[in-house]
Design a protein around this nucleic acid. Structure first.
Lengths: 231, 231
DNA sequence: AAAGGGGTATGACAATTATCATATTATATG
DNA sequence: CATATAATATGATAATTGTCATACCCCTTT
């Protein structure tokens, strides 16, 4: 992990709309001084279950997984998410310690702002508060709904669903590189590694997808959507 | 459903702390005028998937289930919750229409405040905004974590978990009346009705619980906790 | 070059869970 | 009060899913 303490270069940041469109110039100045950018290499842990919650963190670039430990050998993945998402997501305003971890699954950059500063902004700036509530709601909604969608499906349906999630929501492309191993996909959609691999193979045999290592190509979108719908 | 338009009688309401402790007297007056209390009989629908989101709703008394329709015959229960919970919970600030329904599983009373008024309060009153964010976070956190806990467990574990949820979180008692049918429990913890019944029977045979119709008595708490932990 | 580890892959088998059938009891409704 | 309907209950069986074993490949480390 590397801290960059450069000058405020948030012009390119999409979250500017949240943090800056409603904020007076002098407030921007303050946020700029106090925000800390951190870089993480693929595989590095951004925050760990049990860590004190002191900062409001969002993902400026890269991709991360939210996960929690079930036992020495087993992990449960809560969400895989990309650009401009809040990653210190839930719990931030309701707990003192994280009950989940966040790890970089690609080289990532986070922007960190002291929670106390965010609290101050909420107290002082109603427009900011309202925007923040909306952004946070979108995020938690997404997690809840995805979890509900996944758990009603059988194995085929779950694999189809998650492939479509990667293609449509994450990569916006029918060809993409899986950012995680088959094992991690299993931890995400709640099935054994072997069955993830097996289902991939079946989809390949049925000419629904092509597989080249981590690279997936969806070749029969309609069929995959149907499996996700019915499965 | 019955609307009661009586004078402001919110003194006994626990949510007063949220709505009133941070609000000036004239604001209280306004909220009082605009809030609408509604009563629902057991089984009545409080709000329906697809309804326009116009009000901020919380449960003043009774018990409700949040659920969504999967097909003509199948329902998925998202959460069962009681006194003083937000029930127009997620989506309120991020969608225009509800993507879930809420039904009364006991006679219930809701308090309804126009969303526009809540928005106004957020904009004008930072302390209120911060409290609201915390309350909402607690609620969505609870749903996400319960969902994660449930889906890692096998059937025995899930049934044990949900019985403990009722005993500890909802009724605060080792003896309680199930507020829902076995079918609904299955929809909640994602298993077939038959297996819910079967698991209940097994727990009874193993002298972990007693069953008298809807009444459940936990007689071997330690064992049930162990099953919930390991299952 | 050898050894070890993790990821991918596949088959065989075991365990879990759902479904179907049927019966009984409760509850609602005319 | 009778009758339909839903809820509870249990057994038998089928379908789904997980586990174990094995193999291969691709790294990294020694």
């Amino acid at each position: 992990m590397k801290e960059t303490d450069e000058k405020c270069n948030c012009e390119g940041c999409e979250l500017k709309s949240l943090f800056f469109s409603n904020i007076e110039a002098y407030e921007i100045e303050r946020i700029c001084r106090i925000k800390i950018e951190k870089s993480f290499k693929k595989g590095e842990i951004i925050l760990k279950e049990g860590d004190e919650i002191t900062n409001f963190i969002y993902l400026k670039s890269g991709m991360v997984k939210l996960h929690r430990n079930l036992s020495t050998k087993k992990d449960q993945i809560i969400n895989i998410t990309k650009l401009f998402d809040f990653i210190s997501l839930f719990s931030v305003f309701s707990e003192t310690k994280y009950n989940y971890s966040v790890s970089a699954i690609e080289d990532s950059v986070t922007c960190n702002i002291k929670l106390s500063e965010i609290r101050k902004l909420i107290l002082e700036n109603g427009k900011f508060a309202l925007d923040l509530i909306q952004k946070m709601s979108k995020n938690t909604d997404r997690i809840i709904l995805q979890s509900l969608e996944l758990k009603q499906r059988n194995l085929n349906g779950r694999v189809a669903f998650i492939l479509l999630y990667f293609a449509k929501e994450i990569y916006n492309n029918l060809v993409f590189d899986l950012p995680v191993s088959r094992k991690e996909i299993g931890e995400y959609i709640n099935m054994s590694t072997e069955n993830v691999i097996r289902t991939f193979s079946e989809f390949r045999k049925d000419k629904i997808i092509n597989i080249f290592g981590k690279t997936i190509e969806i070749i029969d979108l309609k069929n995959l959507e149907q499996i996700s719908l019915l499965g």
